[in-house]
Design a protein around this nucleic acid. Structure first.
Lengths: 190, 190
DNA sequence: GCTTGCTATGCAACGAGTTGCATAGAAGGA
DNA sequence: TCCTTCTATGCAACTCGTTGCATAGCAAGC
């Protein structure tokens, strides 16, 4: 399980409450990991008991108070140990691929709308990623002032992961176009 | 949940025992869906109780007897109904992406071996897919005998899914090369 | 005053998925 | 003879993940 590690990474990038983490998991972290607030609260509690994170009550005005979490030494050590542990290349699960193979035993043409819907969802995500890239990773005019500056690992690696998301969405759009062309060959309702 | 539907599709393509299904899930179906034999046996039993599949004892020589399952009318109906139901575009979970972002808080260079290992795993899978494609989907010399023959939906759609697997592996290899280049920029052990 | 909506946290129940173990027939090699 | 490997099926325990629901403060609009 890596949810706890995903949380550690997110908290290292910026401390926050369970609620804030849940929203990050809907956005940037959600590019490659999903989690509901239930999961996050449960795991945060366990991590606090294990001493991986420290909690701090933060009174707020205009909204309910929150518990802000930050990574403790034990959490940093746990993350480091996990990073040095090899993991197996993840197994994929594509409902849509099951549907495509299943369509041979039903009506292939009926799947066209579903595939188009998915294609659109991937287009939307791609647009969103590209906007994020333009916003956060456009070099602000070639920094000539400090040519030998050390590269910022956090930022560079975030960008590398985002490029992965972009490559993934482009691949999916291309493949779904391929699938649509294949489905079209079976004509309407046969 | 779509495991039951994946099983239905696999049984429609060819009836078989729980054991055989488990092996298919390690191979061709496993391109886009994984399941252990435990899961499969449990779900098969439930599907049999629900009348989705029929079981038949098949005595064998030289090896233990098996229970061969085939899809019943109710199962076919269940699959059809699922095919016509829209599903949400699946959420992704990439442990490796978590590690890459996490590496910024540890030693980026230490991740290089891990990423290379994953790259190799994807290369191996790509090679395997390409071999399967050459074996199963090479047109046997342009069939001029029957030019207007109806396209074989089952075969064509299986091929489309396999092309998706190939596109995925190629994308991953390209991205991991990108990640390796990024990691290399941080030099040995800094 | 009432409803709606957002922030913020949480419980309880269930279903899905993993891991470890057990059994058993047959083949093949040390 | 014993050990390992492959086929074949299954139980039990556990963890992970999802869904539905509940509470509560505060803001904004009707």
């Amino acid at each position: 399980m890596a949810l706890e590690h995903a949380i550690l990474v997110s908290l290292l990038e910026k401390p926050g409450s369970g609620y804030e983490l849940a929203r990050r998991f809907e956005r940037s972290i959600g590019y490659f990991w999903t989690a509901t607030h239930q999961q996050i609260y449960r795991v945060l509690k366990r991590m606090e008991n294990d001493g991986w994170v420290d909690a701090r009550d933060v009174p707020q005005q205009g909204r309910p108070d929150k518990k802000e979490y930050s990574v403790a030494d034990l959490g940093r050590a746990a993350l480091s140990s996990w990073l040095h542990d090899p993991i197996e290349p993840e197994s994929v699960r594509h409902d849509l691929a099951v549907k495509i193979r299943g369509a041979a035993f039903d009506d292939p043409a009926a799947l066209i709308h579903e595939v188009e819907r998915h294609r659109q969802a991937h287009r939307d995500r791609l647009t969103h990623y590209l906007a994020g890239q333009a916003r956060d990773f456009t070099e602000p005019a070639a920094r000539p002032a400090d040519p030998g500056a050390p590269p910022d690992a956090e930022r560079e690696l975030q960008h590398a992961v985002l490029r992965g998301g972009i490559a993934y969405e482009r691949m999916m759009i291309g493949w779904l176009d391929d699938v649509l062309a294949t489905l079209a060959r079976f004509g309407p309702d046969r």
